[in-house]
């Protein structure tokens, strides 16, 4: 029986006075790849930002590795072993590529060179661009850097917001491969996506979100056999 690494229980979050999350609840099993799917504006990003403490929930509880992290400051939550890869503006353009990785890294100083080499072996492009300001990278390269920043600290839980957004099919495939590889190495992955079909082969569990709540949950295979659900919540045909 695998344990839940993350439990989100009845979370309500307001953004600028708007009631965005209206009692969202879901769990992430350790070692799984879990997806939260849904159309634009249903509160997916708000949910992720609430988990990592950038937004404070007004009600509800969030448990990570058995510890109540509701309301903790972001840096404390992140340092418990969570990485967050944002959808947009996910890296610091005024910093060099290597500096982005350096500030993302959280472990012991002597482990940094090894992990940097490991990240560079996953993304050979980044090694070549190491000393460039990140704002000079292409959109795809910036996304790779954002993911690299997410994994360099070896998180227990990697949270990714729309990892495929704005990427060419070649890059999307690369992202899917990397998520798969990380997952096989033992990392738990939680991702928010609109592009369900690109990721369906690697997702274990899906939560469909609507109006600030989790409206439907299913295993990926089960969801694939229910095209009417996909079209209802995602607006795409299976």
């Amino acid at each position: 029986m695998t344990e839940e690494i993350l439990q989100v229980d009845g979370v309500h979050t307001y953004v600028s006075g708007f009631h965005i999350l209206q009692g969202a609840s879901f769990n992430v099993k350790e070692g799984s790849t879990t997806a939260i799917l849904g159309r634009n504006g249903v509160g997916k990003t708000t949910l992720l930002k609430t988990i990592i403490g950038i937004l404070k929930p007004r009600r509800g509880r969030i448990i990570f590795k058995g510890k109540d992290i509701t309301g903790l400051p972001s840096h404390e939550i992140i340092n418990l072993g969570i990485s967050f890869v944002a959808a947009e503006r996910a890296i610091f353009g005024s910093l060099k590529v290597e500096e982005n990785l350096r500030i993302a890294f959280k472990g012991r100083k002597e482990d940094y060179p090894t992990l940097l080499e490991k990240v560079f072996s996953l993304f050979p492009d980044l090694k070549r661009l190491e000393n460039l300001k990140a704002r000079n990278l292409s959109g795809g390269q910036q996304k790779m850097l954002a993911i690299a920043c997410g994994i360099i600290r070896k998180p227990d839980l990697l949270i990714m917001d729309e990892p495929s957004e704005g990427l060419s099919p070649v890059f999307v495939k690369k992202v899917v491969d990397i998520v798969k590889e990380l997952n096989e190495e033992g990392a738990t992955v939680l991702l928010v996506e609109q592009n369900f079909h690109a990721f369906k082969g690697i997702i274990d569990k899906c939560y469909l979100m609507d109006k600030g709540r989790i409206a439907y949950e299913a295993d990926a295979e089960e969801l694939l056999s229910r095209p009417e659900i996909i079209s209802q919540y995602l607006g795409v045909s299976a």
Partner: peptide
């Protein structure tokens, strides 16, 4: 580098821990 990061984008700096 952390200071420059915080100057560029405070929320992202938080997300970087």
């Amino acid at each position: 580098a952390m200071l420059r990061a915080g100057t560029e984008n405070r929320e992202l700096a938080r997300a970087f821990g």
